[in-house]
Design a protein around this nucleic acid. Sequence first.
DNA 1: AAATAATTTGGACAACCGTCAAGACGGTTG
DNA 2: CAACCGTCTTGACGGTTGTCCAAATTATTT
Lengths: 212, 212
Amino acid sequence: MARQATGAAQRVAVASEALRDEKFNARRIELAEAALETLGELGFARTSLREIAQNSAFTHGVFHYYFSDKLDLICCCVRHYKAKCVTRYDEVVTTARSRDELTEGFLAKLAATLRDEARMHRLWYDLRSQAMFEPAFRKDVLEIDKSLEAMIWRIATRYAELGNRKPASSPAALYALFDGLFQSALLRHLANDEKAVPDLLEEVRRLLPTIC
Amino acid sequence: MARQATGAAQRVAVASEALRDEKFNARRIELAEAALETLGELGFARTSLREIAQNSAFTHGVFHYYFSDKLDLICCCVRHYKAKCVTRYDEVVTTARSRDELTEGFLAKLAATLRDEARMHRLWYDLRSQAMFEPAFRKDVLEIDKSLEAMIWRIATRYAELGNRKPASSPAALYALFDGLFQSALLRHLANDEKAVPDLLEEVRRLLPTIC
DNA sequence: AAATAATTTGGACAACCGTCAAGACGGTTG
DNA sequence: CAACCGTCTTGACGGTTGTCCAAATTATTT
């Protein structure tokens, strides 16, 4: 029955349903974005749905209308967060015409990220730690980790290419190194350590030539 | 008045007070140890004082008698946790008589740690992330981080020494590298990735000769 | 042995949590 | 116009939380 009903009526129905879905999803992302604001401020442990709602233009009921439960909301936040992060350095990679240019571009973006988006990044580290306890987070977190590793790898291979070399270590090791450095610098920066940013930059500047 | 009263009576009083303090502190550590059990199981976000008490031989009131509040308890846990961790590889470092011996000893301990103490370590990463939100944690966390960095550095310098060389990178970079690798391996291991441990060992085995 | 202090118990409290549901709102369709 | 739909608001619910406290118990001193 459903098979045969491929007329105009069904096409319209399908189209309108797709439109609704799209609208629904757009709203979800709007809500996730608002939630990220509070999550970045308070962290996962201290953030409640009511707090999220109060810090946004929405009421707490809306969140339950668009998300089946709290984990669903947080998962959506994490996935949305991913898209923002993974391409951060891509423009520098594609436009740089020399090693120095790439180095400086990378360092500048690194410093700006640490300074301007500290809250979003501490949330990322928070959620990645939560994934060690909460299985529901793992899939998304591991996926983001992979994407970030690939992002670092793109920088490294481009850097090596500009010097007619090849990276000296594996993507995993390289990502671990930069992630560890960034995490440490972030904590120090949040603890009002003035030297956190310059120390990170100095360390990365010294490291880059040794890995390729 | 207090200055002049340096007789036997005061000495006794001071001694008995010191004894009380010591006993008080021993109890605190007992409680902290019990709390760590539950914290490692559930993580910081999901652990309540009542849950801690229920999973231990104590009642929830005792915790409030020995700790001014929840943060005080967690801080004590973190500090106590530190002492356990920081000397983990020291025996291997002092007994190894060759590079190979050190490598194999280190790798064996690394694998055992990842397998047997996964819960304690995910708690460490959880608390370190929490420190990005909760200023009260920062001092202790930064201190532990420094101790762990020194621990890695002891391994690296000994490894270099056994080959008549010097480490090629800074303590901070080296710690960042190993910490990043371990953190990633831990997450994969907790996600039931069978290859997490062997992959880490392989990576470290390949890395060690390149850093010294 | 009596008195004093330290420790422990377990319940009470207000505040907060995630969840849910009854109904209001506004636009679209019949 | 009325019926209906997706969207949103609001308040209530059972349960949990950190905190506090008065009473009970144990240890220590006099």
